[in-house]
């Protein structure tokens, strides 16, 4: 699995006190890992700092609320990791 996923999984394990081995690329942060919105703010803060990006949480939430995206697209960890990779690439472009 990607280095990005590994870092994200480490962050989630540390922030939410979830055993690292329970955090899989297919895990849904909300539905499977039961991470609530407050803990996800902490995770977003750690991801922002670690990768030097700004996760567009408000935009993603709006897209989900408008029915333009599913939570799977952003909160299944392999997808979240891909989104992070895109943001990193966009920053360096």
């Amino acid at each position: 699995m990607s280095a990005t996923f590994d870092k994200v999984a480490d962050i989630i394990a540390e922030t939410c006190d979830i055993p690292r081995e329970n955090i899989k690329p297919e895990s849904h942060a909300i539905n499977d890992l039961e991470i609530d919105s407050l803990d996800f703010l902490d995770i977003a803060f750690a991801i922002d700092k670690t990768f030097g990006i700004k996760l567009p949480l408000e935009q993603w939430t709006q897209e989900v609320n408008d029915g333009k995206a599913t939570t799977d697209q952003y909160f299944v960890l392999k997808n979240l990791s891909e989104q992070i990779d895109k943001l990193i690439a966009a920053k360096g472009a």
Binding site: L41, A44, F45, D48, K49, K54, P56, L57, E58, T61
Partner: peptide, 9 residues
């Protein structure tokens, strides 16, 4: 020290 999307620290 940090301004995220929908949060600040």
């Amino acid at each position: 020290t940090h301004e995220g999307s929908g949060f600040s620290v």
